[in-house]
């Protein structure tokens, strides 16, 4: 479990992270989403004790990272794919890292196999592609078989096969009860990988909720309805908090009513409908919506925290 309380980092006159509070729970994949420069990497470096917070604290399993007795065995991190001396081989890099915690050579070979680096392990890291660098970073993160895994942009530069591999890996790690904290600006990747999402923008947490809640965004449920009698249906559905938009001759988009209630209204009013499709906002849409306006962030946090609503924000 990772807990940040009032975590702040100021570089000169620029506030990179502005007093954020969040908790990353064990046993699920928590995504850390935000545009470039939002403070994701800074936050992760502070978790790893590499950057000193200007104020506030961040702990891993209740203890600041630097005070762990065996840090690599508790927390593994990929902070930067190139956090390696370019003239050293991947194997020697991992060997040197392992030596600090008396991690056996067998484990070094294991993580090399696991990350698919066996063919290039004896080659200089300087010649690695970005994707191989990522794999090496992930191998280093897994070296101590840590309870907490932190990965900063792990799928950057990976081929599609690698992306799927990382997705399966982090889901597997979370299923073993580990804490998995994953940053990315690839929203589509987050949508299929993460269970929970923390969205950061300009150093502030703008959403911290289960991924489904963020996609549903403020409880707005949209449904596409096709019917022969759109006018009649519009009349039947009219009500508080419901908006119906006639998009085409026979196509309606209903916001604020779930499909079941639309179907019931149609049945009661003897209107035949021949399509009823719940429309889900993509994570992209939800994210754009979130980052549109600072004021809206706060309202989302309020509703998200009070009650993760399923339908109707009204």
């Amino acid at each position: 479990m990772i807990e940040a309380r009032g975590l702040t980092k100021v570089y000169g006159d620029k506030t990179a992270v502005a007093g954020v509070n969040f908790t990353v729970e064990a046993g699920r994949v928590t995504g850390f989403l935000g545009p470039n420069g939002a403070g994701k990497s800074t936050t992760m470096r502070m978790i790893m004790g590499l950057d000193r917070p200007t104020s506030g604290t961040v702990t891993v399993n209740g203890t600041p990272f630097a005070q762990h007795a065996a840090p690599l065995r508790d927390v593994g991190a990929l902070l930067d794919a190139k956090a390696v001396h370019t003239s050293r081989s991947a194997y020697n890099h991992l060997l040197a890292m392992a030596a600090t915690h008396s991690i056996p050579k067998r484990r070094v070979h294991e993580v090399i196999e696991m990350t698919g680096l066996a063919d290039v392990a004896k080659k200089k890291v300087g010649g690695f592609s970005l994707g191989m660098g990522q794999r090496l970073g992930i191998a280093a993160a897994l070296l101590g078989d840590p309870q907490t895994v932190i990965l900063d942009e792990p799928v950057n530069g990976l081929d599609p096969e690698g992306v799927v591999w990382v997705r399966n890996l982090v889901r597997h790690l979370a299923s073993e009860g580990r804490t998995v904290f994953l940053s990315s600006h690839l929203m589509s990747e987050m949508a299929v990988t993460a269970d929970h999402l923390i969205v950061i923008g300009r150093g502030r947490i703008i959403a911290d909720a289960p991924i489904q809640d963020i996609i549903n965004g403020k409880g707005r449920i949209r449904t596409r309805v096709r019917t022969d009698q759109p006018d009649q249906l519009m009349h039947l559905l009219a009500g508080d908090g419901v908006s119906v938009e006639l998009q085409d001759n026979e196509l309606l988009e209903v916001t604020g009513l779930d499909p079941r209630r639309i179907a019931r209204a149609a049945l009661d009013g003897h209107v035949m409908i021949y399509e009823l499709t719940p429309l889900q906002a993509s994570l992209e849409e939800a994210y754009m919506e979130l980052t549109k306006d600072e004021v809206e962030y706060h309202s989302l946090i309020a509703t998200g925290a009070a009650a993760p609503v399923q339908s109707g924000g009204n």
Partner: peptide
């Protein structure tokens, strides 16, 4: 790419299965 196979994680993983109390290192530190 290699799929992660839990059985290959070796004896080391044994102490870290689901439900293990977090924050307990199972080996020597630096």
């Amino acid at each position: 790419s290699t799929t992660l196979d839990p059985s290959r994680r070796g004896t080391h993983a044994a102490g870290h299965t689901a439900g293990t109390l977090p924050g307990t290192s199972t080996g020597p530190g630096p």
